[in-house]
Nucleic acid binder design. Structure first.
Lengths: 350, 350
DNA sequence: CTGTTAGCGCCTTCAT
DNA sequence: ATGAAGGCGCTAACAG
């Protein structure tokens, strides 16, 4: 019954199936698309034929006639860390629930993203892009001429509808928390001019100072490897600080790791906080105080909205912002409470 | 120039482009497929027309005529943890390099995976499945009637070519390491009968005992939440052990966290080791001794092999096994060495 | 309820 | 080097 692997027999088509079931191709198609419109007995015969022939409809042929690929395109920079995975899982689950598949494109490290994006646009009904800022205007235009496009995370293009998580007010809240601990020489670690998200977090950081002088940000990439460098700057006294607000957890963890390694005590000598709430944040000692984002939900919402756009819903474009949550652990100076305190910065516009 | 979002003009086709460039559709097609076969001047005219019209070829139409979707299907249970992400990144990078896109399907939690798989089979040129064991034989047959199918991780179906990482010998090596530390009451944490990988690790664990009595495995799911339960069993004395070999890192970390929390010292009171080498393993104190798998490479290799199958290479099917690496840190009892020792269990059959 | 038929947009011989 | 024309497999009218 099972064909020899590699020796696949000529694939079945609607015609093969129709012939075998003694019906027309239209009926076969109907059995698959609108079963109820076919008489019970006929349907059964067709189903049997389908099963016997291991018939699987040719997606491209269907797409061509149906005028829909039944697929979403999702463009992410890469997949390291829990952030993208969560996003992707959230996205896939709602796309799949609607019977759509998701075609994944990772942009980082690809030499010709433009070409890849165009090809993608020819295979899906809509594209959701994280990092649209890096896509040439010209390419974006071509994409939008063919399919609806949505952005993920903050971006400059005001005309591009997008989904993002809140940054400013949570950053402000977290900063005030450090100030409440009596810290006075806070330093923001990260490069506000490299990413909009980081910039917004820095803005919140500045806002919390209420006019008091603010140290300039300590530039750093959001990578583990930068942590050592940053920590050394502090250890050498080159940078004076009693609290470090790192732009993300990987950075924070790496910094903290080095500081502790060199004999400093966190948080008594210096507080360290991050952003993202990765798994590691729960396990390190002291637990890393950070900010959790509803990433999975972000993906789900984007997928839902894209589906609406695909099936032609109107509803005006909007910049959607999802609320984030400050997660207090011990690296900020708080005692090891039994249960973790959490605050939500509700700032959504929806 | 950019069309109003939502007011997409009728999409350009080969005909539109051909007309505008004053050539036939065949020429337009050639410019895209075999540029060198078109005279310089003509090609330029066509390219201009393409650009002006924001022309993007219709993927389905191309697939239908070209007899290829230029897409891989990748089926994973889910995406939590670094494992799947790495795999996916490795896979996508080689697929993309060949101009193929990857359609992702997450099977966990989906009610009708069979239907989803069939649909997928109609949209791609080949399918790589992790967890093929859970797919009904009947479904698998239907898939294979249409496209080549590859398995990821160990599976029972001998007829299914697949890629996996080595388990037994690394487990044995790691176990011997614990024995070398003088530990004598080792307990394996995990359920060998629930997953082939876990079973193999347990087999290595047993093998290392060289006939000495082996404690029965302590059943547990590979989830964080199980850690507390397992730790409590040890703390209450219900399970006697001076070393725990956990089936994966999440479990190991959770167990270790609870043990330390309750006042035990790791590794002096009890050693704990894991499997996977997740990021957290580097940051916890003591550092978690574990086993690293070449996951990214696993994905890349699978993609490469699938591409060969798609383009019709022969080369006989095989069960490919990639070597893993024991990563020594401190949770096994080793001193905090300056550099981490690593051993590689080379066991590939290729 | 079921059959007939005309495309969907592109690629690919076969001519020229 | 380029054009003309058939067909890929399926869906969606339109008939019957």
């Amino acid at each position: 019954m099972a064909p020899e692997p590699g020796t696949r027999s000529p694939r079945a088509t609607v015609y093969t199936v129709a012939e075998r079931a003694g019906v027309s191709v239209a009926t076969v198609s109907r059995v698959l698309q609108e079963p109820h419109r076919v008489k019970e007995a006929t349907r059964a015969r067709v189903l049997v034929a389908i099963d016997e022939l291991d018939y699987v409809p040719h997606g491209a042929a269907r797409s061509l006639a149906y005028h829909r690929h039944e697929a979403h395109g999702l463009v992410l920079p890469e997949l390291s860390g829990p952030y993208y995975s969560e996003l992707l899982m959230g996205y896939e689950s709602v796309a799949a629930a609607a019977g759509y598949s998701v075609v994944l494109l990772l942009s980082e490290g690809k030499d010709d993203v433009g070409a890849a994006l165009r090809r993608l646009a020819g295979k899906v009904d809509g594209i959701v892009i994280m990092g649209a800022a890096d896509v040439p205007e010209r390419t974006l235009t071509a994409l939008r001429a063919r399919v609806p496009v949505l952005g993920l995370t903050r971006n400059d293009r005001a005309d591009l509808e997008s989904f993002a998580t809140e940054n400013r007010s949570s950053a402000e809240e977290l900063t005030r928390h450090l100030l409440d601990h009596g810290r006075r020489r806070l330093v923001f670690v990260g490069s506000p001019d490299l990413a909009i998200d980081v910039r917004e977090r820095y803005e919140g950081f500045v806002a919390a100072h209420d006019g008091r002088p603010v140290a300039p940000p300590l530039p750093a990439d959001l990578r583990e490897t930068e942590g050592g460098r940053v920590a050394d700057l502090v250890l050498s006294g080159e940078v004076e600080a009693d609290a470090l607000m790192c732009a993300n957890d990987e950075l924070a963890l790496a910094v903290m790791d080095r500081l502790v390694d060199r004999g400093l005590d966190v948080p008594s000598d210096i507080a360290v906080v991050g952003w993202d709430d990765v798994m590691t944040a729960r396990y390190v000692r002291p637990g890393l105080t950070t900010v959790a984002q509803p990433v999975r939900d972000l993906g789900a919402r984007a997928a839902a909205r894209m589906h609406d756009l695909i099936v032609g819903s109107t509803g005006d474009p909007d910049q959607h912002t999802l609320p984030t949550t400050v997660v207090i652990r011990q690296s900020c100076g708080c005692p090891p409470a039994g249960t973790e305190a959490q605050h939500t910065a509700a700032d959504t516009k929806e």
